[in-house]
């Protein structure tokens, strides 16, 4: 309980898709929820390293991290 309360207060600054944002999310999964991303098909890299979908609940985001959130799109 105490840990959760502490979690509530923690705000970190991330660069998300090139824009600086303050967030409360600790994991990539929480970040997607906090950003209200409703899509299903994403890939995420933190500091240029891909975080596989299976690790979205366990990987920890840190203050200053640079996050890329990408989706499939038209291409030639």
């Amino acid at each position: 309980m105490q840990k959760a309360a502490l979690h509530e207060k923690t705000v970190i600054a991330l660069t998300i898709n090139g824009e600086r944002k303050q967030v409360r999310a600790i994991t990539p999964r929480e970040l997607l929820t906090e950003l209200e991303l409703e899509g299903e098909f994403f890939a995420i890299a933190v500091n240029r390293r891909v975080i596989t979908r299976t690790r979205w609940d366990e990987s920890i985001l840190r203050d200053g991290d640079s996050v890329e959130i990408v989706t499939p799109r038209q291409g030639g």
């Binding site: 989706t71 799109r73 030639g76």
Partner: peptide
């Protein structure tokens, strides 16, 4: 078919719409 990887847009809905068609 060739496709690309782009930063999410419109909450990921653009990507989903495209990907479902593919």
């Amino acid at each position: 078919v060739t496709v690309s990887v782009r930063r999410e847009n419109a909450g990921g809905k653009d990507g989903d719409a495209f990907w479902n068609i593919i």
